[in-house]
Design a protein around this nucleic acid. Structure first.
Length: 493
RNA sequence: GCCGCCUUAGCUCAGUUGGUUAGAGCGCUGGUUUGUGGAACCAGAGGUCCUCCGUUCAAGCCGGAGAGGCGGUACCA
């Protein structure tokens, strides 16, 4: 390892933040909380119950991703406990579930249907919408082997995305199965694990690189824009054609795709079993009411390489995302899942069928924030502190508002009124309460509706007129303060 | 991990062949207005020019190394 940032020469500490660990402020936090609430609400309605596990798991319980000397930080964040055992921060919510199920054993009734929402950590290179700490929201069914459980995951995932406000054509859940892929791999004679991996990775890039890029990757290899060369799978021309024809069988409706596959899939028993699996899922999707536009069968879907054993699904954001800087961002995958029948067997030897769906909350929240669809800011009512000799006046009024259930604060400090108004403005306050000498003398309070004030101010050009007009302002008897403020706040909802 | 581009005020950026005290717009603070968030005018604060090493009488500018950011690629359980 090379020397890291040198100690500051000035003796001051550097205010810096590890990349991929985002600071989250008001707007983003609320957008994220709303997503979690909505998605878990859908999961609950479908009959799933809550289960959360801790942030750390023993490294061996998470699988093969052990810290080693070659790449001590590959993939996971790991530390040694005081008994020298390696622990890792969980990288998803599924592996800890497998551990939990194995630990509970027969005591846990099955099928066990659970949902969870929380942060996970991956030690990888961050990018836009990609973090090293991020939230996922999962649902899993453990102990149900039939395709119905998979179809349910798919339909429920699509419904959850609808529930958070996705509309026609803004997203799609694409469905495939590992068995179909295995059939294709067998049919082109790919035996070496290395070759099979290379083919699957190439297929996974169909939507991004297009048919010609994938063809290069299936064959000799591909040179990208930066001049970097990626070694291909080394298939012959005929095999490349065959794999591509299969991958491009996806069509507008599930029935047509299945028909295409039936033609293209003259291959192995495993391939035929995969096709039958997809047909069964398609049938169940009808009964579950999953719209054709929301859920498609797409043979190019691969997803992760190791633990899925059957159906796999991937949710993708289709809407173009243009940031304030005018750049367009490709958000891509916002969730996915699949069947992982062997995950519990790692602990117990007993094969426990399981399937799950996961939505990437942080990535979705980031996308919605870029789209300017974060939660609308709603700041506190600010009680101005105008009577320098008696700040308790503002404190008392704010207390009165809070006791009435309103979000309120008294301005801390004795700045000019102008500064206090600017503060309220920046806090996105719905209203300010103004009580100075005049109001005290008259036994009244002045309340300014900041939203209405801003609106009316647009029509005023001269500053003097603006000051005189005092737009959006009302004066009411002191006893009516709470009800008047409440009326303003509620009118802005 | 690999390839390319970039890094000057809170933000967006200018900065001449290396030459005194590094600038602008926006934002921020204060004032004009003892008590009104927009507008206008005036004033002010705010900088280890990413860091370190080197070349030089002299470095924001030249050279080397490193860090960070952006884009691509690989990986993504």
């Amino acid at each position: 390892m090379s020397d890291k940032a040198s100690p500051p020469a000035t003796g001051k500490d550097l205010a810096r933040k590890p990349r991929g660990f985002p600071d989250k402020r008001e707007g983003l936090i609320h957008a994220q909380a709303r997503l979690v609430e909505t998605v878990t609400g859908v999961y609950r309605q479908w009959g799933f119950e809550a289960l959360d596990t801790g942030a750390f798991e023993y490294a061996d319980a998470l699988g093969k991703f052990l810290p080693d000397d070659d790449r001590p930080n590959a993939g996971v964040f790991a530390i040694q406990d005081d008994d020298e055992q390696w622990m890792s921060l969980r990288y998803d919510l599924t592996a800890p579930l497998a551990r939990f199920v194995a630990e509970q054993g027969q005591g846990l009734g099955r099928p066990f249907r659970r949902y969870a929402a929380g942060p996970v950590w991956r030690n990888e290179k961050p990018g836009p919408g990609r973090f090293r700490e991020f939230w996922q929201c999962d649902a899993d069914t453990v102990g149900a082997s039939g395709f119905h459980a998979d179809a349910e995951m798919i339909a429920m995932g699509a419904e959850a995305l609808r529930a958070i406000g996705m509309r026609d054509g803004e997203f799609v859940v694409r469905v495939n199965t590992r068995r179909l892929l295995n059939g294709v791999l067998d049919s082109v004679g790919a035996e070496k694990a290395e070759t099979r991996l290379a083919i699957l990775r190439a297929l996974d890039k169909l939507d991004r690189l297009g048919a010609s890029g994938v063809a290069d990757l299936l064959g000799a290899g591909r040179k990208d824009d930066s001049g970097d060369f990626t070694k291909g799978a080394g298939l012959g021309a005929d095999e490349v054609k065959r794999v591509l024809a299969f991958a491009e069988a996806g069509a507008a409706t599930r029935a047509v795709t299945l028909a295409n596959l039936a033609k293209a899939a003259g291959f192995t028993d495993e391939g035929k079993a995969g096709l039958a699996e997809l047909e069964a899922i398609a049938l169940a999707l009808e009964a579950l009411g999953a719209p054709e536009d929301d859920v498609k069968i797409d043979p190019s879907v691969v997803r992760g390489l190791e633990y899925y054993t059957g159906p796999v699904f991937e949710a993708e954001l289709l809407r173009e995302v243009t940031g304030e800087d005018g750049k367009t961002y490709r958000i891509g995958s916002i969730g996915g899942g699949g069947r992982y029948d062997d995950l519990v067997a790692r602990f117990t030897g007993e094969t426990v069928p399981a399937t799950g769906f996961s939505i990437g909350i942080s990535r979705l929240a980031a996308a919605l924030a870029i789209l300017g669809e974060g939660a609308k800011l709603d700041g506190p009512v600010v009680v101005l502190n105008l009577d320098k000799d008696n700040p308790a006046l503002a404190l008392g009024l704010a207390t009165e508002l809070r006791r009435a259930g309103l979000r309120a604060e008294a301005y801390m400090g004795a700045s000019s009124m102008k500064a206090q108004m600017k503060y309220a403005d920046r806090r996105a306050s719905p209203a300010v309460v103004i009580v100075g000498g005049d109001e005290v003398a008259k036994g009244t309070v002045t309340i300014k509706d900041l939203e209405m004030g801003a609106m009316k101010a647009k029509a005023i050009s001269s500053n003097e007129e603006y000051r005189d007009a005092r737009p959006g302002q009302i004066e009411v008897p002191r006893a009516e303060m709470v009800s008047a403020v409440r009326a303003i706040v509620e009118a802005q909802r």
